[in-house]
Design a protein around this nucleic acid. Structure first.
Lengths: 262, 262
DNA sequence: GAGTGGTCTAGACCACTTG
DNA sequence: AAGTGGTCTAGACCACTCC
């Protein structure tokens, strides 16, 4: 059981993690496994851990950090779940050859545009209470004809129209202040009142713009549009929103990353 | 520390798991946590664990099954990751109100159609080696003009054209037998030769059909099409495929489930 | 205050891959 | 045969929620 540092130069995939300054702060309220996974993730993002390189075995890593192996495993596992690392039994844990960023998130168009530096703005076209159509009632799990809030908005980026967003919400869920709707995204408003979003069922298709849609979005009638329907659920399983949205295909596409589930 | 079975009827959310026949087989090579998670998943799917009901605390569950708490936690965690359960500190673990099925997977159109009972068939339009265009070279990480295999297929469901699939692959990756391409999906062929798919970067947009595309798909010129570009990576981080696909919007939409990452 | 999940430890044995 | 990750145990203390 050699304790001295090994020469280790077997090709180009020797453990590089040994050179990293890793360490945890036990006085911090941040969980130890999370501190470690953040440090490793930062090292990968910054290229200090080269793609394809081995991380070094878990036992040694645990010993070096003064942690138990399960704790180190928990840190590594979270990065495997993010797609940054790959484990192979009998081989080791390898840094994936970049290219991978984030798996698909339940994203808000507002946040997406803001993150892209697109300066999103919103015009509220409608903010009313209407009886639920059969389609909306089925999606939200309410009775057909029951009161449902209808919010229709036009979303701009750099003052160019990008999308028409039509959302249906249970009336009791949220105080939909029009001024607030114009200054932020719907998901942010939900989170602000304590709703924990959990999952969404989406459908993405395409269709031709009708005259009204073309006028709103500044496209020609018949122009191709991206159409998305989405039902969002909170962590109690309740449907909190049904959206029926159209996007200008000339200006917008959905980009996302998928991970294969093992 | 009350050891006797409690009356427990606090509303409608008492632990129902007590009524379940759970048990693990220690002689099986299947991991204990996996056996447990499968049993719980089946109980949820079949409604034997009602949505919203509590699972009962982990310690007790572990004791009942003769397992350690970490093992039980691992089983529960895998179902939380699948979106079937929700944990709340101080409260318990609850079954989510159904509706949730699978998060988005890296799906093959062939498998999707087959799973939907759509009887997919394929016509190979091209199966050649071509020099890589700039776009393809960038996606696959090869030199511009380098040899790349080009596979172009028309995919039918019930003998109706659904999509035109155009794939670019590194030449050395796969023996692309045309007969095989007509009888199965590309991902299956990759898995069959030991390629482990890991992730994909996708972009979904819409555009109008040109004359050629319209003719192939049986649509009118100018009809809206769903357009998807996808680069797929294996678990070494290597790009194994770049796809440039169009789907008839009148016949096809992408459906998927998203989970919010905590 | 009682009960829950969240985190952590210090070991153990097994299965798989590689030389 | 050696080294790796995969699984598992039997405890422990803490943070949060609810009564």
């Amino acid at each position: 059981m050699p304790k001295q540092p090994e020469p280790e130069q077997p090709g180009g995939s020797a453990p590089q993690a040994a050179a990293l300054r890793l360490g945890v702060d036990r006085t911090s309220p941040v969980p130890l496994y999370f501190q470690l996974s953040q440090q490793l993730e930062a090292a990968i993002e910054q290229g200090r851990l080269a793609p394809g390189s081995l991380l070094g075995n878990e036992i040694e890593l645990a010993a070096r950090l003064g942690l138990s192996r399960p704790t180190v495993r928990q840190a590594i596992q979270s990065l495997v779940d993010k797609g940054l690392l790959v484990r192979r039994r009998g081989v080791g844990t390898q840094v994936l050859h970049s290219k991978v960023r984030r798996p698909l998130e339940l994203s808000s168009l507002y946040d997406d545009l803001e993150a892209a530096g697109q300066r999103p703005t919103t015009r509220v076209l409608r903010n009313t209470v209407e009886p639920a159509t059969a389609r909306v009632a089925a999606a939200l799990g309410v009775a057909e004809g029951a009161d449902v809030r209808l919010v229709e908005r036009l979303r701009y980026a750099h003052d160019e129209p990008m999308a028409r967003l039509r959302n249906h919400l249970p009336v009791e869920l949220l105080d939909c202040d029009t001024a607030q709707l114009e200054s932020t995204g719907l998901y942010r408003m939900m989170r602000a009142v304590g709703i924990t979003l959990h999952s969404a069922r989406q459908s993405v298709g395409a269709r031709a713009a009708d005259a009204e849609e073309a006028r709103l979005l500044g496209e020609a009638p018949g122009a191709p549009l991206l159409a998305m329907e989405r039902t969002t659920f909170d962590d109690t399983g309740r449907a909190v929103e049904f959206g029926d949205h159209i996007y200008r295909a000339s200006r917008y596409a959905f980009e996302f990353q998928l991970l294969v589930r093992p």
